[in-house]
């Protein structure tokens, strides 16, 4: 395999040809923040927080997209880079509720982490903020589009799974938002509640309804569990608070691991001491169902009787 040699922050780095700058830099131990970068759908380049300075380039370069080239001289924390990142964070916070005190995502939020790292305080830029209605229409997923930073990871992961593609970017300019078809609520959409979107959201825009207000992220211990419903073997995290299982959440979907509601519900029932109430969509509405029905075991249970 051919390699390329470049200089990152004064350090000589050699990586396989085709390596992204982001991976070359993080591999060498340097930190680069990312919001929109997703290994499963790379080269999006939307949030711009990962920009770095490449000597000779006219503008800053998105390291999640740019390929490492021989002889490149890269700075990942130069004054220009830091200024750009701070401004981008400032712009994000200016259009965000900044309600970290009560946010379920606090402690596990990239926006919060990067604001801390780059010392960006509460919004210095005033002006209009988005003001969307909180969408808790789906029994499993809470959507707060006021917290969305439009990294579009959820859109991309939803489109990757066959027969999904439920959400997309809608509108233009400042009004751009992630929305299901016709900008309907999630419950009205064709969403199958697989939670792929929740698993990739870097901020508090998409959260689990069952965990809302129950735990702080730093209070829980995570244990990786693998779903055995089908051959995909999707991975989930079992969350424990004070030793007691409180919920099961999806880990990022991998190649051929689609994630599904049935898988998550099955693990809930298996591990959670107080499992949530299963709900399924019948017609246009979500209704409470028995565990046997939720897991598609009606027939089997009948025969076992």
């Amino acid at each position: 395999m051919s390699t390329v040699a470049l200089t990152i922050n004064g350090q000589e780095v050699t990586v396989p040809k085709g390596t992204r700058l982001l991976d070359a830099a993080t591999g060498a131990g340097f930190f680069i923040p990312t919001f929109c970068h997703d290994e499963n759908s790379p080269n999006y380049g939307g949030c711009r927080i990962c920009v770095v300075e490449v000597k000779g380039a006219r503008n800053l370069v998105a390291s999640c997209c740019a390929e490492a080239m021989n002889g490149m001289v890269v700075e990942t924390e130069s004054p220009a880079v830091v200024e750009a990142r701070k401004t981008i964070l400032e712009l994000m916070l200016a259009n965000h509720p900044v309600d970290c005190l009560t946010c379920d995502k606090a402690g596990d939020c990239r926006l919060q982490d990067y604001a801390f790292r780059y010392d960006v305080k509460a919004p210095a830029l005033g002006g209009e903020r988005k003001d969307y209605e909180f969408d808790d229409s789906n029994p499993y997923i809470n959507r707060d589009m006021n917290k969305c930073i439009l990294c579009a990871k959820c859109v991309r992961t939803c489109q990757e799974a066959e027969d999904r593609g439920v959400i997309s970017l809608a509108y233009r300019g400042f009004r751009t938002k992630v929305a299901p078809a016709l900008d309907a609520s999630l419950a009205e959409s064709a969403c199958v509640s697989c939670s792929r979107c929740v698993s990739v959201c870097p901020v508090g825009a998409l959260t689990y309804k069952s965990l809302s207000g129950k735990t702080r992220t730093w209070e829980v211990e995570k244990e990786e569990v693998t779903c055995t419903w089908c051959e995909a073997g999707c991975q989930f995290d079992l969350l424990r608070k004070n030793g007691k299982a409180v919920g099961v959440v999806a880990k990022s979907p991998g190649n051929g691991r689609p994630l599904c509601l049935k898988g998550r519900l099955g693990l809930e029932l298996k591990y959670n001491d107080e499992p949530m109430t299963p709900m399924l969509k019948k017609g246009d509405e979500y209704v409470e169902v028995s565990w046997a029905e939720a897991l598609g075991l009606d027939e089997l249970v009948e025969k076992l009787k």
Binding site: L150, F174, T176
Partner: peptide
């Protein structure tokens, strides 16, 4: 430009709005 920004990247989507304001 604010109205016509595609909304994909942060500097253009959010930045032009603040410039305009």
């Amino acid at each position: 430009t604010q109205l016509e920004s595609c909304g994909k990247c942060t500097p253009c989507r959010e930045g032009t709005k603040r410039l305009l304001e």
